[in-house]
Design a protein around this nucleic acid. Structure first.
Length: 281
DNA sequence: ACCCAGGCGACGA
DNA sequence: TCGTCGCATGGG
């Protein structure tokens, strides 16, 4: 029978839709007018927003930890007014923030983000979401009607490469398997990486075949809370070339990765790729 | 048809 | 250690 547990959070200034679909997560889909359905870790939910209230309806068997999980996931207790006050001191950055100030850094599980950003390489956002969705549906546990968890490392590690063909992940399929095998075996261990200094943490993740500097940085930022990281993809390179030749303002300090969310989103909506094809660095 | 995508690994110099 | 290229797939 359907679970009706609904968690409610104060979310002043929050923009749920943009936060879910700005390229940091590939675990959500539209399931109605202003209602989105998705997964994080072992939890499935429907989410919607009413002004400054965020509603999260648990779709699985809600447990004692679920409310705290979503509270953390949606960053509803983090002080964004304070962050914005610092970020907007810089005029260029203020343009990016003001373009969509309601974006929040989702606090995603490590494993979800590792799979998602392996899929993301040399790929388009729509396709990333599609492959991630097929990966969950094909190999993950069903948490609710139409919502599947990402396969656990053990579930995925036991698959032969050919089994991933229906994902249409292309050359990334073997990368997904290697990630599963190395996490399952403990060769790549989340808890240990969380304790490491950044350079070491990056190298630890890059042991995975198919995880290079960019994917490692995305996992550290989006899946491990390393807010000081700016993953450098083509959009961020364009934005930096164009409006931040000196890099993001030093005042962003160890929250540069959060500032990056706004710059990335601004760049995607304001820097047509065609005009910027031959920019370097 | 051609170019591109939240890159990476292999290879040659 | 640094460029360059192929890689799977599919949308513009």
């Amino acid at each position: 029978m359907a679970e009706k547990t609904i968690f409610q959070f104060d979310a002043y200034g929050f923009d749920l839709a943009t936060t879910l679909f700005c390229g940091q997560s590939f675990s959500w889909q539209v399931c109605g007018q202003g209602v989105y359905q998705g997964v994080a870790g072992r939890y499935a939910a429907k989410v919607w927003q009413n002004d400054n209230l965020l509603f999260v309806q648990s779709l699985g068997a809600a447990d004692a930890g679920e409310k705290a999980f979503w509270q953390h996931y949606f960053a509803v207790q983090e002080d964004y007014p304070a962050l914005h006050a610092v970020f907007t001191e810089n005029q260029q950055l203020a343009v990016c923030i003001n373009h969509c100030p309601g974006i929040r850094m989702l606090r995603q599980p490590f494993w979800d983000s590792l799979l998602s950003f392996i899929i993301s390489q040399n790929n388009h956002m729509q396709r990333i979401a599609g492959i991630a969705s097929r990966l969950r549906e094909q190999f993950g546990d069903k948490l609710a009607q139409g919502v599947y968890a990402f396969p656990t490392p053990a579930q995925l590690a036991s698959q032969p490469l050919e089994a991933l063909a229906p994902l249409r992940a292309g050359f990334r399929a073997k990368y997904l398997l290697d990630a599963a095998q190395k996490v399952h075996s403990g060769q790549v261990e989340e808890a240990a990486i969380r304790q490491m200094p950044l350079p070491q943490a990056r190298l630890a993740l890059q042991q995975i075949y198919g995880v290079g500097p960019k994917v490692a940085d995305c996992v550290l930022l989006y899946g491990m809370g390393r807010d000081e990281i700016i993953p450098m993809d083509v959009w961020m390179k364009r934005a930096i070339q164009r409006i931040f030749p000196q890099g993001l303002p030093a005042a962003c300090g160890d929250k540069q990765g959060i500032a990056q969310l706004y710059v990335f989103h601004w760049a995607r909506e304001n820097l047509p790729a065609k005009e910027n094809l031959h920019l370097k660095e």
